[in-house]
Design a protein around this nucleic acid. Structure first.
Lengths: 335, 335
DNA sequence: TTGAAAGCGCTAACAC
DNA sequence: GTGTTAGCGCTTTCAA
C-alpha cells in the first residue's frame, strides 16, 4: 500500500494525500476526510525510508552508553527514551562497552543511520587526550551531540552535568563535621565526572588539612556488580594496617562494598564506620542500615538535556553547558 | 557525497560502485580497487534510507521492554543489543511502560520504522485475554516477533523461556526439605512467567500437603525499586498475626524486602527466616547474608533468542518455543 | 565485466 | 485548494 494506491482510491493526487498525511492546512475539510477514510480503511502507514530519503531525517536520536546494565546508566536511558518519544522522536540504542574503538565505530554507525542527534550517556565517553575525543567532534560536524554528565567544549556539542565537585566537597565536609577525619575515597572511574568527584573530596580534605598520602584513595577496577570484590579490596587495605573510619564512595555499589566490609569486620555503622554513596539509586534502601547518598537529580538532567536537544534541532540558540546541583540525602550510614 | 560522486571520481558507473559496495563478484579486481580507493579517500558511506527504500530492510530490530530501569530487563537488553550488533543488526529500543495501549502503539511505531523483527523483553507483554494479544499477532503478520520469557502460540511468533515452574518447584521443595514448612510466596507480577512461578510454588506446597489459604500468597504492587515498601507489607502481615519462617520471592528485590523485614523484626537469617530470591542479579551480593537465588540463565536465553531470530530472518525453519532450565544458587539466606 | 535506466515511496516547489 | 513533477540515493534488471 503506497501513497499512489491511496490517491487513486480517494480520487485525488498523491500530493493531496501527502498534505493530509503531514497536516498541511491547504486541504479542504471534505477532501481531507475523504483521504483519511481511505487511509484508515486500508490501515495505510507511510514508508519511513521514502520519507527519510527526501527529508533526510528519520526523527530518530542515537543513544550511546557504555553498559545499559549499569543501574545509573539504565535509569538515564529510561528517562531519555521516554522524553524523546514524548517529543515525537525514536531512539536507537548502542551499548558500546568501554573501548574507544568500539565507541568510535558505534558513532559512525549511528551517523550512517542518519540519526538527527546523538546522546552520550555517562562521562566515560570523554578522554584525557584531545585526539581521543576526535570521534566526537567528527560526529558533531554532522549532528548535534549531547553529553550527559560529561562536558566538552566543541561546536555543536552540548553538555548537561551534575555539579559533582560541589556535591562531593559538601559530602566530605559534612562527614568531617560529624567528627570523622580519616576518610577513605573509594572510586571506580577516572572519567570526567570521576575526576570532578575526586577533586571535590580532595578540596575538602585539603581545606581541613587532612590530605595524606595516596593510600586513602582507593581505585576499584572490578565489575560494577561484584560487591564482594569491593569489600575484599577494603579488607586487604585493612590487613595492610591502613585504618579509616569513613568511606566516601563514587557510586552506591562501592558504598555497599564498604558496608559489606564493615559488617564482615564487625564494625558498627555508622559509629565505627561512616559511609556515603553516590547516585541515590535503589541500592540505598536494600541494605541495613540504609545508605546516605548523593542524589544528582538524574531525571532533571535528562529532562533538560532533551529540552536542549529539541531546541538545537529547531535551530534555536541553546546553552552549551548546564550545571545542576546535587543533594546529600542522609540515611543510616552517617551520624 | 553520494554514489554518483564516487562513480564520477572513479570513472565508472554508479552500478559498478553499487556492486563494489555490496560485494558482488562481477567486478574486476582492478576497478574494485579503484572504486574502493575513492570511497576510502572521501570516507563515503551509503545513505541508509535510499538503500532501505529499495531493499525494504534496514537491518534493524525493534526491542520493546516495559521498563529499562528494571535490573533484569536492563541486563536482557544489554545482552540482546550486543548480540544483535555482532550479527550486523542495529536495534531501536522502546520502553513502553506497562500499559497495553502504549505497547500497541509502540509496536506500530516499530513496524512503521520498517524493523526486520521485534523482540519483546519480559513476560508482561502477554495478556490473559486473547484479544489483548492481538497487537502481537498483528505485528507478526509483518515481521517475526520474538518473546523472551513469555510464550504464545501464533504464526511467526517465537518464544524463548526459562522453566520458571520447575525452578520454583525445586526451590520450594528444597526449602521444605530444609525444615521450613510455613513458606510465604511473595510476588509482584501475574504475567506469563509470574504465573508459572506461582504454579511451581503451589505444586510443591500442595504435594507436601502444605497449601493453606490465600494469605500465604502476597502480591506486592508498589515500585520495583522501593525495598522498604516491600518490607512494610510483610510487617503488616506479621502484625495481622500471620507468621512464616520462609519466603520465596519472585524477584531478588522482593527477597531483599523480605530480608529487610527480617532484620527489622530482629529475626535471625536463615534460622528464623529462610529466603530465596529470583534472577540471581547483582542484588544477591549487596546484602548480608547474601541471597540464595534462582539463576535463570539470562545470557543463554538471549543468545538463543538471537540465534533463532537470525535463523528466521534467513528463512530457515526454527523452533517455535525453547525452554531452558534454571538453577538454584545457594547462599546465606537458606540453611 | 560494465553501463543505462527503471523503479523504491515520499516531499515540496511550482503551476494552475 | 489541488495537481504535476522533479528529485532524494540506492539496487537491480537488462543490454551491450
Amino acid at each position: 500500500m503506497t501513497i499512489y494506491d491511496i490517491s487513486e482510491k480517494a480520487g485525488v493526487s498523491i500530493a493531496t494525500v501527502s498534505r493530509v498525511l503531514n497536516g498541511s492546512n491547504n486541504v479542504s475539510e471534505k477532501t481531507k476526510k475523504k483521504v483519511l477514510d481511505v487511509i484508515n480503511q486500508y490501515e495505510y502507514t507511510p514508508n519511513a525510508f521514502a520519507r527519510g530519503l527526501g527529508l533526510n531525517t528519520m526523527k530518530t536520536i542515537g543513544i550511546m552508553c557504555a553498559d545499559s546494565s549499569d543501574l545509573y546508566l539504565a535509569k538515564a536511558i529510561y528517562y531519555i527514551e521516554q522524553k524523546l518519544r514524548a517529543n515525537g522522536y525514536d531512539s536507537i540504542l548502542c551499548c558500546t562497552g568501554y573501548d574507544l574503538a568500539t565507541k568510535a565505530s558505534s558513532m559512525n554507525l549511528l551517523i550512517t543511520k542518519k540519526v538527527d542527534g546523538i546522546i552520550l550517556v555517562g562521562s566515560n565517553f570523554i578522554y584525557e587526550k584531545e585526539e581521543d575525543n576526535k570521534y566526537i567532534t567528527d560526529a558533531s560536524a554532522q549532528v548535534p551531540v549531547m553529553l550527559l554528565n560529561a562536558a566538552m567544549d566543541a561546536p555543536n556539542v552540548y553538555s548537561v552535568v551534575s555539579d559533582d565537585f560541589t556535591s562531593m566537597y559538601d559530602a566530605t565536609m559534612e562527614m568531617i563535621r560529624s567528627g570523622v577525619e580519616d576518610i577513605l575515597y573509594f572510586y571506580n572511574s577516572t572519567s570526567y565526572s570521576g575526576k570532578k568527584k575526586l577533586a571535590g573530596y580532595r578540596a575538602a580534605m585539603e581545606e581541613k588539612g587532612l590530605l595524606t598520602n595516596g593510600s586513602f584513595l582507593q581505585l576499584y577496577q572490578g565489575s560494577h556488580e561484584d560487591i564482594p570484590a569491593m569489600a575484599d579490596q577494603l579488607k586487604k587495605l585493612h590487613a595492610k594496617g591502613i585504618s579509616f573510619h569513613g568511606v566516601i564512595a563514587a557510586d552506591d555499589s562501592l558504598a555497599l562494598g564498604a558496608l559489606k566490609y564493615g559488617r564482615e569486620m564487625g564494625l558498627r555503622i555508622p559509629e565505627d564506620l561512616s559511609i556515603i554513596g553516590y547516585n541515590n539509586s535503589m541500592l540505598v534502601s536494600c541494605c541495613d542500615p540504609e545508605l546516605t547518598s548523593i542524589d544528582n537529580k538524574l531525571e532533571t538532567l535528562c529532562q533538560h538535556l532533551i529540552t536542549t536537544l529539541m531546541g538545537v534541532l529547531e535551530g534555536n540558540e541553546m546553552p552549551k553547558k548546564t550545571v545542576f546541583s546535587g543533594e546529600l540525602v542522609k540515611r543510616g550510614t552517617t551520624k
